[in-house]
């Protein structure tokens, strides 16, 4: 096993984790752009995705694809409900106030999940077997390819939605200028609701595709949410390719840091590099003047 094979392994593993961060990061960015809120409950939807799929599949004996569908549906509903009950009643509040509400929401959702499913860790079956696949000397699980594939689909769908559908375009308009958007007849309230629904669905999807590899429990959301948050910020809170790149960068940096430098300091290494980049480019990595935000 020579070094280049090892490095390929680090990069591929890092890309796989990074893809998850990217999807979670997209959720952060979408809500941020329509409301200026950093939604600290985002990680809990990742948890809900995994736990709900598990519940439908293992407890209710539904087929895996149907369970996944239901899990995304329920998580989306929870996200929309949260927006209706806790975010939308406070129309003109300072975004910071709303951030605290999302912190409360995340504690609440985590608490309910703990009561419903207990504190144990559970494992979701792999989507298609567990025979490792060898790729130029590096090995990956079939599930890694599911992660790459579904992430790609999500990115493309996201792009199509925001650039070619009328709702998506309206949401983009809102993120540029809310007042102007409402003047041309866009219902700003609806776009906020949509942004919460879409982010929850994205979070849940990330949680589902990662659960067979990494297992899931009521408290997995905290750390994954944090990493996704980093991805979104590195991407300049863009709802597009910036955040995806951000997620992949965080994932690969972590993996290379652990493999080549020190596994104890791997998160610190990733953050130090990110901070250095930020210090050199205070306006963000992928911002070239006036670019798209959604």
């Amino acid at each position: 096993m020579d070094l280049s094979e090892d490095i390929l392994q680090y990069i591929l593993s890092g890309l796989s984790t990074g893809a998850i961060y990217a999807v979670i990061g997209l959720g952060f960015a979408i809500i941020y752009n329509s409301t200026s809120i950093i939604n600290f409950a985002q990680g809990e939807f990742v948890m809900l995705g995994g736990m709900l799929t598990l519940f439908f599949h293992v407890t209710l004996f539904l087929s895996l694809p149907f369970s996944i569908f239901l899990a995304v549906l329920v998580a989306t509903a929870v996200g929309a409900l949260f927006e209706r009950l806790a975010i939308s009643p406070l129309k003109n509040a300072d975004p910071l106030i709303l951030v605290i509400i999302t912190i409360g929401g995340s504690i609440l959702i985590r608490g309910i999940a703990m009561l419903l499913w207990g504190k144990d860790t559970y494992v979701l079956p792999m989507f298609s077997g567990d025979e490792p696949i060898v790729l130029w000397g590096a090995t990956l699980m079939p599930q890694n390819f599911w992660i790459f594939g579904i992430t790609l689909i999500i990115i493309v769908a996201n792009r199509l939605f925001f650039h070619h559908s009328i709702i998506g375009k309206a949401m983009r308009a809102c993120s540029f200028n809310r007042v102007a958007s409402s003047l041309v007849g866009i219902n700003v309230k609806h776009t906020v609701l949509f942004s919460f629904a879409i982010s929850s669905a994205l979070g849940a999807a990330a949680g589902i595709i990662i659960a067979p590899l990494t297992m899931t429990s009521y408290d997995v959301g905290i750390m994954l949410g944090l990493k996704g948050f980093c991805a979104a910020i590195i991407g300049g809170m863009s709802g597009g390719i910036g955040t995806v790149a951000g997620g992949l960068i965080v994932g690969v940096l972590e993996s290379l840091g652990a493999g080549l430098i020190s596994s104890g300091y791997k998160d610190a290494i990733a953050f130090i590099i990110l901070l250095l980049i930020l210090f050199l480019r205070p306006q963000g990595l992928f911002v070239k003047g006036d670019t798209e935000r959604v």
């Binding site: 300072d94 605290i100 409360g104 929401g105 504690i107 959702i109 985590r110 608490g111 703990m114 009561l115």
Partner: peptide
Amino acid sequence: QDYDIIVYGLTLIVITMFMP
């Protein structure tokens, strides 16, 4: 007991909602 985390989260939301 086990419900404290839920009550805590709810209280946080309610305080912020009604006293922004």
